[in-house]
Computed example of a mutant assay.
Amino acid sequence: MGIDWGTLAGVFGVSLGITVVVVVMFSLGLAAWARAGHGEPAPDRSPGRHQKVASVAAVLCFAACLAVAAFGIDLIVPA
């Protein structure tokens, strides 16, 4: 019984890459959510198109994170 080090390194690389992507997407989602005004209210900003775009961007980022997590769970848990 031997270890295929190339395959192990590939799995490590893909896992690290996906982890970084999910963390960045979640961070971007939080930043967009705050920019949309869903955090503390900012009196100097008037509601407008930029807030709607930021809200949509935040929801898309969170949905991407959720999709990656659901796919990972689907791979791990047998059907």
Rank of each mutant, 00 (worst) to 15 (best):
M1H: 03
G2R: 02
G2I: 06
I3M: 07
D4I: 09
D4C: 11
D4N: 14
W5G: 04
W5M: 12
G6R: 07
G6T: 05
L8E: 04
A9Q: 15
G10S: 15
V11M: 14
V11T: 14
V11D: 12
F12I: 13
G13I: 10
G13P: 05
V14K: 15
S15R: 11
S15D: 09
S15Y: 13
L16T: 10
L16Q: 15
G17Q: 02
G17A: 10
I18F: 13
I18T: 11
T19L: 13
V20L: 13
V20Q: 10
V20I: 10
V22L: 12
V23E: 07
V23I: 07
V24D: 05
F26S: 02
F26H: 07
F26M: 07
S27E: 03
S27D: 03
S27Y: 06
L28P: 02
G29R: 00
A31W: 05
A31K: 09
A32K: 03
A32S: 14
A32Y: 04
W33S: 01
A34I: 07
R35V: 06
R35W: 04
A36V: 00
G37K: 02
G37Y: 08
H38D: 07
P41L: 15
P41Y: 07
P41N: 12
P41R: 08
A42G: 08
A42R: 14
P43V: 08
P43C: 10
G48A: 02
G48Q: 06
R49C: 04
R49D: 08
H50E: 12
H50P: 01
Q51P: 03
K52P: 05
A54L: 00
S55Q: 09
S55K: 08
A57R: 03
A58F: 02
A58C: 10
V59D: 06
L60C: 13
L60S: 12
L60R: 01
C61R: 01
C61H: 03
F62E: 01
F62S: 03
A63M: 15
A63K: 02
C65Y: 09
C65V: 14
C65E: 10
A67K: 04
V68C: 14
A70N: 05
A70C: 07
F71H: 09
G72W: 05
G72D: 04
G72L: 14
G72T: 01
I73N: 00
D74S: 12
L75Y: 07
L75R: 11
I76V: 15
I76H: 09
I76G: 11
V77M: 13
V77W: 05
P78C: 02
P78G: 05
P78Y: 08
